[in-house]
């Protein structure tokens, strides 16, 4: 196709080449400085403020948001099935969980608190990257990843305490599928956060461009939000 230029490109050209924009305004400005060679150094200084760069498409952020929408729907489906099956079973038999099963609330609460702290550290990481404060960004991301590992550890501990075999009942199948799917989401969010940490370490994300770390943070917040629903629907309501 024929050569074309975008308005943004036109603006950029104008900014780099002041002559293209006509004579620069001079009223109220000091006389053009002259360097030792006699050349007017004003040629190298734009007469107008540089145009902002073209708006960068937030591909990663939008893609992550779409993927999270799908993930939310998967959990909505699972929790919908859980609640519907629980209600139907309670109507039919009066009991949902097998008698010997105990779902302790303490580890679940600990997971919730750990997640809550990780939200703060993840936001700290985003904020630090925005400020170009790399040491704090690495520290915050490292702590977030540590919290994620703690969540996995606490969940496996919870499994060991529940005394619930997967073959026991529909409740067992549902509880294990939902919580394991959430564990998978935690692992995926950790990998994503780790990847973005390395990219930040490599200098890809910093200052004004914090798309990658923002996407990882959004993924983490979604993971926490899903856990809150699971905590309420499974661990509290039982």
């Amino acid at each position: 196709m024929a050569s074309t230029s975008t308005p943004a490109a036109d603006r950029a050209t104008t900014a780099a080449d002041p002559s293209a924009a006509g004579p620069a305004p001079t009223a109220g400005l000091p006389a053009t400085p002259v360097d030792v060679t006699g050349w007017e150094v004003a040629d190298t200084v734009p007469a107008v403020a540089p145009a902002p760069p073209p708006a960068r498409p937030r591909v990663l952020l939008v893609g992550t948001a779409l993927a999270l929408a799908g993930t939310f729907m998967a959990f909505a489906g699972l929790i919908g099935v859980y609640l519907a099956t629980r209600a139907a079973t309670l109507d039919r038999t009066g009991a949902w969980l097998p008698e010997e099963t105990v779902i302790p609330l303490t580890p679940a609460n600990m997971i919730l608190v750990t997640f809550a702290m990780s939200v703060v550290t993840m936001h700290w990481a985003v904020w630090s990257v925005g400020k170009n404060d790399r040491p704090h960004a690495y520290l915050a991301l490292g702590i977030t990843i540590l919290f994620g590992v703690c969540v996995i550890n606490a969940t496996t501990f919870l499994y060991s305490q529940m005394n619930l075999g997967i073959r026991d009942s529909a409740a067992a199948v549902l509880i294990y599928v939902i919580t394991t799917a959430h564990l998978a989401m935690v692992v995926a969010a950790l990998v994503f956060a780790g990847l973005m940490t390395f990219r930040t370490l490599g200098g890809q994300y910093a200052g004004r461009d914090k798309e990658g770390i923002s996407a990882a943070a959004m993924c983490w917040y979604a993971t926490v939000a899903v856990y809150v629903v699971i905590w309420l629907a499974i661990y509290v309501t039982k």
Binding site: G70, A74, V81
Partner: peptide, 14 residues
């Protein structure tokens, strides 16, 4: 698809 088929994925996982 993104907001409906994940429910099918969840059902198949169950």
């Amino acid at each position: 698809w993104l907001v409906s088929l994940p429910v099918l994925v969840a059902t198949l996982a169950l």
